[in-house]
């Protein structure tokens, strides 16, 4: 479904990703972990189409398409969704209106009928119940005045509505208390399935107690320095990222 080959990315003249290779098949959940500044958020943003980054080398294929040539909105319409680390406020635009416009843009792209306000409300209410999202939040402007937890939950709610094929969660756990974390994780788990893949970008292992990944990749200084199963996350928790950094030269030799 997604194949990243030797991806190198610069921002502000500085090389942040130094040759990422990653293959994600449909139905899989991958976790990308790494210390601050390792480039994991950059990877998420580049996949979503952020134009502040400069791709200097490599390629990314998504369902047989050259992802790097696609505009961000086309990626979204083709099923890529990113839950933002810092969801953006849009004053004066109601959450529901925003989301219906987004869903309809995606549906239009796929040749489906657009939802009218009533049908959409029915759909939204169903998902709100599922994710325990407060209905009041829906009529309020997008993310305006939301608490950190509400913003993150709103991202997952949007994901539930838009039903992406590839979901990228960028540090969705940061700033969440344990209850909110559990609700968010439940929401994500409910979307796991054969027809979609999920990439969970996180600094901490704790989210992975709730969203059990099939694969864990550790990013350090712009490279994936280790890949493994879910146990890798626990090992990391135990030993800390410094363990990897020490181990890194050895790893490089092995490659």
């Amino acid at each position: 479904m997604l194949e990243i080959r030797n991806l190198k990315v610069k921002a502000g003249g500085k090389e942040i990703l130094r040759g990422i290779n990653l293959k994600v098949n449909v139905g899989e959940v991958h976790s990308i972990m790494g210390p601050n500044g390792s480039g994991k958020s950059t990877l998420a943003q580049v996949l979503a189409g952020r134009e502040t980054y400069e791709v200097t080398e490599g390629e990314v294929w998504y369902d047989g398409k050259n992802l790097l040539e696609m505009a961000p909105e086309d990626r979204a319409r083709e099923g890529i969704f990113m839950a933002f680390q810092y969801p953006v406020e849009i004053p004066g635009v109601s959450n529901l209106y925003f989301l219906r416009s987004a869903l309809n843009a995606i549906r239009k792209h796929r040749g489906l009928d657009e939802f009218d306000a009533m049908d959409f409300l029915t759909l939204a209410k169903e998902k709100m119940g599922l994710l325990r999202v407060d209905e009041n939040l829906m009529s309020r402007p997008v993310n305006e005045g939301f608490s950190g937890g509400e913003k993150k939950r709103n991202e997952i709610f949007q994901m539930a509505i838009l039903e992406p094929r590839l979901a990228i969660l960028d540090e969705t756990d940061s700033g969440l208390d344990i209850d909110a974390l559990r609700i968010v994780a439940e929401g994500v788990n409910s979307l796991r399935g054969k027809e979609r893949a999920i990439i969970v970008v996180t600094h901490y292992q704790r989210l992975l107690n709730y969203i059990i990944p099939d694969y864990v990749h550790v990013l350090s200084e712009g490279r994936i320095v280790r890949s493994g199963g879910k146990h890798l996350a626990l090992e990391l928790e135990d030993k800390g990222y410094s363990w990897l950094e020490e181990a890194e030269p050895k790893r490089v030799q092995v490659v």
Binding site: P72, E73, V88, V93, L99, S101, A102, A105, L162
Partner: peptide
């Protein structure tokens, strides 16, 4: 704001129009 809207599937034009109308 524009990137956020585009990531959700809206074109840049629709995004600007929506943000300005919200304003």
């Amino acid at each position: 704001q524009i990137f956020y809207c585009r990531q959700r599937g809206l074109s840049a034009e629709d995004a600007v129009s929506m943000i300005v109308n919200g304003f």
